[in-house]
């Protein structure tokens, strides 16, 4: 600005120049914005350093898959140099809401079949890629002696559960009902990972989490197995109708059933379909 030619005739040229300035400012704001939107727009082709074009496949996945899909995704990218996976994790209900709002993505993996069925209009056929089971997470060594679901009803045990809005909360509720146990939780957390962290931090004494979550915490919680904890806990995966790369989405889902992927899932504490 200080370097621009000074207005010798101060009055006349002002207005047009001001207009140009405003236009330039607008452009300066809008161009990066548009570029950003394009880059985030699901099917964007990312260019790699070696000059080859890579397809970016966007995966929406349930938060309980956070660690294992990050690992599996890295393995898949290594096998398929032309594909870059972009992973986005949230509670299954939140994923469903995102898809209904038109989130640009290629495939979705939820933590229950009910959420997937409710998305029928937006997805192709689904395949179950893994199963899981609920366990009781307690502090290492289980100092309060929480050995069964019945102990969760004790007054001296602070229990956190997942909110009934997320699959882990619904599974947990059903499990407790089947065992005829009435639990008065101190909190209903918005995701199963939040339940795990409350137990890890020692703020709660026990919580119902997936076996895979307990495995992911690497010793910071102890997993107490629960009879019937595995009933119905399934992870269906399906390509989205609006996928930018439907073929690659289907290929990744098929790959999740391959031996390398199954090994990763098993190691992470999941059960195989």
């Amino acid at each position: 600005m200080p370097g621009t030619p000074a207005p010798r005739a101060p009055r006349a040229p002002r207005r047009p120049r001001a207009g140009i300035g405003a236009a330039a400012l607008l452009l300066a704001v809008l161009v990066p914005l548009t570029a950003l939107t394009a880059a985030c727009g699901g099917g964007a082709l990312g260019r790699t350093g070696d000059g080859g074009a890579r397809a970016t496949v966007t995966v929406l996945a349930a938060s309980s898959l956070t660690d294992v899909l990050a690992e599996a995704g890295a393995a898949y990218e290594e096998e398929h140099p032309g594909v870059r996976l972009r992973l986005s994790f949230a509670g299954s209900q939140e994923l469903a809401a995102q898809i209904r709002q038109g989130a640009p993505a290629d495939l979705v993996v939820t933590a229950d079949t009910a959420t997937m069925e409710a998305l029928r209009d937006f997805t192709g056929p689904s395949t179950v890629i893994a199963r899981n089971r609920l366990v009781i997470a307690t502090a290492p060594g289980d100092p309060l002696g929480v050995g069964s679901l019945r102990d969760l009803a004790r007054d001296d045990v602070k229990v956190v559960l997942a909110a009934p809005e997320v699959p882990a909360g619904r599974y947990g509720q059903r499990l407790l009902e089947r065992h005829g146990v009435t639990v008065r939780p101190v909190s209903r957390e918005p995701s199963v990972r939040a339940v795990l962290s409350k137990v890890e931090l020692g703020e709660a004494d026990a919580g119902l989490v997936y076996a895979s979550d307990a495995a992911a915490s690497e010793g910071r919680v102890e997993a107490v197995p629960v009879p019937g904890g595995g009933a119905g806990v399934r992870y269906p995966a399906a390509p989205l109708e609006d996928a930018a790369h439907p073929g690659r989405a289907a290929d990744f889902i098929a790959w999740l059933g391959s031996e390398p992927a199954r090994r990763l899932l098993r190691e992470a504490g999941f059960l195989l379909p």
């Binding site: 002002r14 207005r15 001001a18 207009g19 300035g21 405003a22 236009a23 400012l25 607008l26 704001v29």
Partner: peptide
């Protein structure tokens, strides 16, 4: 009124 012409848009 001149000032708004420059700043009005943003």
């Amino acid at each position: 009124s001149r000032t708004p012409a420059a700043l009005g848009g943003p």
